[in-house]
Design a protein around this nucleic acid. Structure first.
Lengths: 194, 194
DNA sequence: AAAAAAAGAATGAACATTCATTTTTACATA
DNA sequence: TATGTAAAAATGAATGTTCATTCTTTTTTT
């Protein structure tokens, strides 16, 4: 195993441990020592990869966010028709939230908390541009309601976070039927009624 | 001032300080000493009113949640027509999130975090029943889509939390026009299309 | 064998909680 | 009304722990 490779493995283990522990206990209740233990590393080693605890959590956030958007736009082509493009992206996002549950939960916690600093938050947002562009086109073509991006996001995308959270708490199971229904609700809330 | 009254004032000051500090710094970064200082009280005094820090934040959550639902259902009458009832409740909730911004933000942070223990979370949910009953009736009357309460909540109510959060971050201003649009999106997403 | 990476133990600060006193309140008595 | 006093409320300082971070030494790599 090459030197660089080994380092990356350790770094990844640290990020993974951070996600899992913060998800279960919250930022305030996850000591560096526990993160180190879960990553099979000495506490001191963390500081070879990250400046401090805040830096660790910021970097974790930005990386997970990048992974999320990469996944979301994987098969998307900006020339697709608006409705098809939206459906594709929406379903990829839903997929991510179901399959990469830990990652998605971590993002949700960061997004609703002053845990992350503002700079990292901005970094995270940047990757969302293709969806905003699609909406822009949709509005121009009269397919999407002429609403601000924030409103569209609130109704079309954000509910998925709530549903994932609820599922995680065990209150209900988000199966394929629910997902189809959720998609219909999402699309209903932003499409121009014909 | 009667003895009891004075105590209540102090308790309220503690709860208020908790909300403000947790909103701005997160649970992990608000020491009891700061809460005490902001409430003009000695740290030791907190322990006359609450068992410990966890108890303080749990009780704060349950009380704010009760205030929220009381506000939401203030003028609601279970005999109203479904659409009118929903509109009334929705607008009260929106109102609360705009006017009692600190309270609403605190709830959002608690709801997306392992900060609160499960028992208190359950306590908080109980108060929502009138809305669930209304939806039940709406489904029976064929006015509301036959979806699980969780899905309806995700699309009809939860987006308001996201919008409030976004406004708090300064990214955009949630004015009356936006609110009307948001209401239309909420209703579109859960009503049966005619 | 020099350099890099990693480790475990040590350090010092921050913090939740408790303790020993002081202050305030409630109220009985004159 | 004024005064004494026991109980309650409140306090600031102390305690002991937890934890982020650093230091010194050991191990691994080249």
């Amino acid at each position: 195993m090459a030197k660089l490779q080994k380092s990356i493995d350790k770094r990844n283990a640290l990020i993974k441990a951070t996600i899992e522990l913060v998800n279960n206990n919250g930022f305030h209740a996850t000591p560096m020592s526990k993160i180190a233990k879960m990553a099979n590393v000495s506490p001191a080693t963390i500081y070879l990869y990250f400046e401090n605890k805040q830096d660790l959590v910021n970097k974790t956030y930005v990386e997970v966010k990048a992974e999320y958007t990469k996944y979301a736009f994987e098969n998307f082509d900006p020339n697709m028709p608006v409705e098809a493009g939206f459906e594709l992206i929406w379903k990829r996002i839903a997929d991510f939230k179901l399959k990469e549950c830990d990652n998605a939960l971590f993002l949700a916690q960061c997004d609703n908390t002053p845990m992350i600093d503002e700079y990292s938050r901005q970094e995270g947002i940047k990757h969302l541009q293709p969806l905003l562009d699609l909406w822009q086109r949709g509005r121009k073509e009269g397919i999407i309601k002429p609403l601000s991006d924030y409103l569209l996001y609130a109704y079309a995308i954000n509910p998925l976070s709530f549903l994932m959270m609820t599922e995680k708490r065990g209150a209900f199971k988000l199966d394929q039927t629910h997902l189809d229904e959720a998609y219909q609700s999402a699309w209903s809330s932003i499409k121009v009624c014909s």
